[in-house]
Every structure is written in structure tokens, then in C-alpha cells.
Computed example of a mutant assay.
Amino acid sequence: MTKPAPRGLHRPPIARWFFLQGVVLVVVSLAFLGLRGQVSWYSALLGGTIFLLSNGYFALKAFRYSGARSAKQIMNSFYKGEAGKLILCAVGFTMVFKWIQPLDIAALFLTFAIMLVTNWFTPMLVGSKTQQS
């Protein structure tokens, strides 16, 4: 009898998470377009895009390594990913405030907040299936 191969740690389904978050961003942006107009639409789109880009950077850094032997590298990657995410958010908001006029600040920040909350619930919505590294 042969034993099945041991199952290691797996990476979360990042692509599915970002797809769901992208759908949420499109729906929220279109809702702003319908309810408040074009300025609110692109402001919402920018707020969600800032979130997605910075969160994507974090995901690339944080889930770069896997396995128990890589524990130190995993922790370092999480710290670097989180620091980079915060910097990208700051740079993103700075660029938007500097170069985009007119701007609906409420739509920008509300969409960013909606994306943040969506990020908290995405693992439950997508499911706990994982992908192989």
C-alpha cells in the first residue's frame, strides 16, 4: 500500500478574491454613477483602485513563501507587504488629491471603506478552498 503524499500549507485563492473585489468595485462605482453622476463614479473608481492596487502588492509580498521552513521569510514578507501597502495607499491618495479635479471626496473614501469591508468578508464569500503553491 502506498501512502498519499502529505498535504502542506497552501496559498489562499488570491485570484478569486481579487475577482470578487473587482466585481464589488464595478458595482459600487456604477451605483455612484447612477445616483450621483460622473464625478462620483470616477472618484469611487479611484478609491477602490487605490485599495486594490495596495492590497495586491500586499498579497504578492505576503504569500510569496509557504511552508514551515519558510516561517521567518513569511513573517518578513508580511511586514514588508503591509509597509508597502500603507505607502502605496498614501501615494495613491496624494496623487488623486493633487491631480484629479473635480473630485467627490465622499465617494472616494466611502468606496475605499467598502472595499476594506469587502476584503474582510471575501475569504468567507469565496470559500476556504486553497490553491497549490
Rank of each mutant, 00 (worst) to 15 (best):
K85L: 07
G48N: 04
F32K: 02
A68T: 09
L88M: 11
A59V: 12
F63M: 11
S66R: 13
G56M: 03
L86A: 10
K72C: 13
V91H: 01
G47M: 03
G84V: 06
G81W: 06
N76C: 10
L35S: 08
A68D: 11
F78T: 14
C89E: 05
A83M: 15
A71E: 12
G67I: 11
F63W: 15
F78W: 12
A31I: 14
T49H: 00
C89M: 09
T49R: 00
A71I: 12
L35A: 12
G81S: 07
S70L: 11
G47K: 05
A71L: 12
S66V: 14
G48V: 02
K80S: 14
Y42V: 07
A44L: 03
N76S: 15
A83E: 12
M75L: 15
A68K: 11
L46E: 00
G81M: 08
L33I: 01
G34Q: 06
I50F: 00
S54Y: 03
S40C: 04
G47Q: 05
A44G: 05
K72D: 15
A59L: 09
G37A: 07
Q73V: 05
R69P: 06
N55T: 05
N55V: 02
K61E: 13
A62P: 01
G48M: 03
A83P: 13
R64H: 14
A31Y: 10
F63S: 06
G37S: 05
Q38C: 02
G34W: 12
A83S: 15
A71G: 11
G67L: 09
L52E: 00
L33Q: 07
M75H: 14
V91T: 05
S66C: 09
K61G: 03
S66Q: 12
G84L: 06
A44K: 03
A62F: 02
A90Q: 04
F58N: 02
W41M: 14
R69W: 10
Q38N: 11
A90L: 14
N55R: 04
F58W: 06
L86H: 06
A44E: 07
F63V: 08
R36V: 10
E82N: 13
L60R: 15
I50K: 00
F63Q: 10
Q38V: 11
I74G: 11
A90T: 09
N55I: 02
K80D: 10
V91N: 01
A71R: 13
E82Y: 09
I74R: 13
A59M: 11
R69K: 14
W41D: 09
F58K: 01
Y42S: 04
G67F: 09
G56N: 03
G84M: 09
L33V: 02
Q73A: 14
S77F: 07
S66K: 10
L60K: 13
Y65I: 08
A44P: 08
G37L: 08
Y65P: 09
Y42Q: 02
A59S: 11
M75C: 06
I50A: 01
G56K: 03
F32C: 10
V91C: 03
A59W: 08
A31D: 07
S70E: 15
G81V: 04
Y57C: 08
K85E: 05
K85V: 04
L88A: 08
A59E: 06
A44F: 03
Y79Q: 12
I74S: 08
W41T: 09
L53C: 04
F78E: 14
L53P: 01
S66L: 10
T49F: 04
Q38R: 09
